[in-house]
Amino acid sequence: MAMAGKAREAGVPLMKLVRLRGLPILQQLHLEERLLRTSSDNWCLINDGTSSAAIVMGLSGKLSELIEVKPVLRDHIPIIRRFTGGGTVVVDHGTIFVTLICNKDAVPHVQPFPRSIMSWSGQLYSEVFEGHADFRLRENDYVFGDRKFGGNAQSITKHRWVHHTSFLWDYEGKNMAYLKLPAKAPKYRLTRDHMDFVCRMKEYLPRSEFIERTIKAIETQFSVKSISMESIDVPSVSEYVHTTRLLTEQEIREACTLQS
């Protein structure tokens, strides 16, 4: 509490940092949603990989239009519909997740609107990648040159917002075959398939260095306090109804029928 007081006295907002390793992505998304809706603190969650492969869809995405359903059923890949918008991504142990949850007045000049938040986040990550690659924010994606390595999604409430990113530090090429070319692809993608459209961050900087540089960039705008997941004081899963959920096999099979 003393640190929080000093941060406020100095006019710098406090941000609680939770570093995770291999937390299943469904658990991470449930935690994010609880923190957004039931906490009044600013948070940064960094999850270094998830325990096993999964497909994560945006809140309004249509399964039959975004995913090759037959191979997903064949390989028993779980599909999660998250509480935020954005596109569809395959995640696994090679994905690094960074989530920023902020009160709307926590960051000067950032308005609680998607474009303002994206612009701010693009500037934040330009510090992270400075001197390492041709980093840019293009149509809500993080890219090196014209190849995507980070996909973003957001949710904005009356007083707070969340901005979360799946960073492709590495990926398995075969997993990209689960994704269809979306009808609303960004213009810079042209008609490139997934393998030509995305790239691996590991070709540009080490995994641990990316995480440390991200924390340092956040420390330029917040007073950062590291805490453990166990010490987070928010309602438990049993006390909070989540929007994020695992799709049932029946829902996936119905989408498979639409594709047939």
Rank of each mutant, 00 (worst) to 15 (best):
Gly94Phe: 03
Thr220Met: 10
Gln221Pro: 10
Met3Tyr: 13
Ser52Ala: 12
Ser52Trp: 03
Leu73Gln: 03
Leu190Gly: 02
Thr165Val: 11
Leu45Asn: 01
Asp141Arg: 06
His242Arg: 10
Ile227Met: 15
Leu59Ser: 02
Ile211Pro: 01
Asn42Val: 03
His164Glu: 03
Arg82Pro: 01
Phe129Trp: 02
Lys104Phe: 11
Lys174Cys: 13
Leu59Ile: 03
Gln250Val: 12
Trp120Val: 10
Gly94Glu: 03
Val107Gly: 05
Ser60Trp: 06
Asp105Tyr: 15
Gln250Glu: 13
Arg37Cys: 14
Leu100Arg: 00
Met176Asp: 10
His194Pro: 07
Gly11Gln: 07
Ala177Gly: 03
Val89His: 04
Phe210Lys: 01
Gly58Leu: 13
Glu209Asp: 11
His30Lys: 11
Ser126Arg: 13
Arg200Pro: 10
Met1Ile: 02
Gly85His: 07
Asp41Gly: 08
Lys187Met: 14
Glu33Met: 06
Glu203Arg: 11
Thr257Ser: 15
Met201Val: 06
Gly122Asn: 05
Thr244Ala: 15
Arg253Asn: 12
Ala53Lys: 02
Ser40Lys: 14
Val89Tyr: 04
Pro186Met: 11
Arg82Trp: 04
Val162Lys: 02
Asp48Ala: 14
Ala4Asn: 03
Ile67Pro: 02
Val224Phe: 05
Gly150Asp: 01
Phe222Ile: 09
Glu127Ala: 08
Glu212Ala: 13
Ile211Gly: 02
Ser236Val: 10
Leu17Trp: 00
Ile25Ala: 14
Lys16Leu: 11
Glu230Gly: 08
Lys184Ser: 08
Phe135Glu: 00
Val72Ile: 05
Thr165Asp: 00
Tyr125Lys: 10
Arg74Pro: 08
Gly22Asn: 09
Thr38Ser: 15
Arg138Tyr: 14
Leu14Gly: 02
Ala53Thr: 06
Leu137Gln: 06
Trp169Met: 00
Val241Asp: 08
Ser39Asp: 05
Val224Ile: 07
Val56Lys: 01
Lys70Leu: 11
Gly87Ser: 07
Met176Gly: 09
Met3Phe: 14
Ile156His: 04
Pro13Thr: 09
Ser126Thr: 08
Asp170Phe: 09
Ile227Cys: 14
Gln28Arg: 05
Tyr188Ala: 06
Val234Met: 09
Arg81Tyr: 03
Thr243Lys: 06
His159Gln: 12
His132Asp: 05
Ser238Phe: 14
Ile77Gln: 06
Thr99Leu: 02
Thr214Ile: 13
Arg138Ile: 13
Tyr178Gln: 11
